[in-house]
Structures are given as structure tokens and as C-alpha cells.
């Protein structure tokens, strides 16, 4: 199996506070993994390392066989939408077209527009192409941001809390879209709702200073408790996980 992402002995500290310590991780092509862990455990840090927005203090990161900065064009990234200005004058199409920004061209071409329309269709938002982004509900905004991440036709999709502040039905809906997309691309989703996502994802990556990778066999409740230091209330025990790798 082809490896899309590999981390070797990666450590990262912020203001001398260790966030990630000695992390080794390898993610194969067409993986669908959820990154879970407590707040401040290093989930977002891990994503930022994969995007090359920050650099590890120690260790080596390879994304699609190159350093993260060079792989950016092939990664679709969906940030948490909470940091975006909700009064910004832009339509859904304007926002999605951002995913077609390129160093080499100034204006969007017909092809860019077609790709954007296609991405909007993928997330079932066709009727809203010319609607103002700020007129949408939380769940619709999340879908638009997924479309923006998609329209650069990425090989890897990184999503930071795509289901924060949306209702359960919307959450199910978003994940079935992602499941469909997973036929073609590798997907990593940051989530704090382990019980729910484990229904859809193939792997759970627990991040709390250390990273523990749980593919395919049964997860032990106590193991997840260790990761969360016991503050996780609801854990489903029927998803396919096994203990930490040696």
C-alpha cells in the first residue's frame, strides 16, 4: 500500500510547552481516519504540521513523498469556520472559487468555474451557488467549505472539526458525503465526537502529546480513557481498533 503521509519521531513545542512528543505515524492511500483527543492535546497542531504552516522541532514529515510545503497544492484543507468573518460580502461561488487560487494565474477561468460548480454539486448545494455565504446555516457553511477544499481536486482532504455546531442529521449527512469522497482520496478528520465518527471512519488516531494509531481491531475502553485521562464520557466499544503499536 502506498503511503500518503509519514511522520518520523516528530516533536513540536510551543513556548517550551511540549505539544507533540516523538510522534511516528504513517497513513496509507485512501485511508479515512478520525483524529481525536482532548482540547490542547495537539490535534490542530498535527494538522498544521501536515500543511507545513508550522515546522517540527525534531523529526521528519513527508506528505505525498515531499515536504509538506510542496504538497500543499494537492491537499484540500477545511479550517474551522468560526474564525471567518460572518459579514463578509461573498457568495457561495466566490468562497468555493478560492480553492482554485493559483500562483500562476490572476483571474479565474471557465474551467475554474466549472470545477467550483462541480464541487458545489458534490456537497448538494447547487441551489445556493449565488446565495450570500453569510445567509447560510452552520451546516451549509461547513458544506461550502468542504466544496472549497474539494475544488482544487486534492489527493488528501484535511478537515478541522467539520461537524462543530451542527445538528446530528447534518453531521450524518456530511459524513456520508465524506464516505463517498473516500473512494478517491485520503481523508483525515479532526473530531471530538469519537463515538459518532467511528461508525464511518476506518481508523482512529488518538492525539494527546503522543499519537496512538488504532486500525482494524477492537478498542479497549480503558485505552481511550488513558488517552483522554478519563474525561471522556461516551465511548462506543464496537468500532474496529486495537491497542497502541509498539
Amino acid at each position: 500500500m502506498e503511503t500518503d503521509i509519514s511522520l518520523k519521531n516528530v516533536s513540536f513545542a510551543y513556548k517550551k510547552q511540549p505539544i507533540l512528543e516523538n510522534v511516528t505515524l504513517s497513513i496509507t492511500h485512501r485511508e479515512f481516519a478520525s483524529i481525536v483527543g482532548p482540547n490542547g492535546g495537539g490535534k490542530t497542531t498535527l494538522l498544521k504540521l501536515l500543511l507545513g504552516l508550522i515546522h517540527p522541532d525534531k523529526g521528519d514529515i513527508q506528505v505525498l513523498g515531499t515536504p509538506p510545503e510542496k504538497a500543499r497544492e494537492r491537499i484540500g484543507y477545511m479550517p474551522q469556520y468560526a474564525h471567518l468573518d460572518m459579514n463578509f460580502p461573498a457568495t457561495v461561488l466566490d468562497v468555493v472559487l478560492m480553492g482554485r487560487l493559483k500562483k500562476s494565474t490572476f483571474w479565474f477561468s471557465k474551467k475554474d468555474r466549472d470545477q467550483a460548480q462541480k464541487a458545489i454539486k458534490t456537497v448538494d448545494m447547487t441551489g445556493f451557488t449565488h446565495t450570500g455565504f453569510n445567509e447560510l446555516s452552520g451546516g451549509q457553511k461547513q458544506r461550502v467549505l468542504i466544496a472549497r477544499a474539494l475544488c482544487g481536486r486534492p489527493d488528501i482532504l484535511l478537515l478541522d472539526e467539520p461537524t462543530a455546531n451542527v445538528d446530528h442529521e447534518t453531521e450524518e449527512n456530511l459524513f456520508s458525503i465524506l464516505q463517498e469522497l473516500n473512494r478517491k482520496m485520503t481523508i483525515l478528520v479532526v473530531s471530538h465526537d469519537l463515538g459518532f465518527v467511528s461508525k464511518y471512519v476506518k481508523t482512529v488516531i488518538c492525539v494527546n502529546r503522543q499519537v496512538v494509531f488504532h486500525p482494524t481491531t477492537l478498542v479497549e475502553g480503558t485505552m481511550i480513557k488513558d488517552i483522554y485521562y478519563g474525561d471522556l464520557k461516551m465511548v462506543r466499544h464496537d468500532h474496529r481498533c486495537r491497542g497502541p503499536l509498539p
Binding site: 500543499r72 484543507y77 479550517p79 478560492m98 487560487l101
Partner: peptide, 14 residues
């Protein structure tokens, strides 16, 4: 537009 709306994403687009 990109710099004003979502600086980080625009940076990631090169």
C-alpha cells in the same frame, strides 16, 4: 479577496 476572507487558506494555495 483571499487575504481578507481567509488568509491561512490563501497562503496554502501558494
Amino acid at each position: 479577496f483571499g487575504v481578507c476572507f481567509d488568509n491561512e487558506f490563501t497562503l496554502l494555495r501558494g
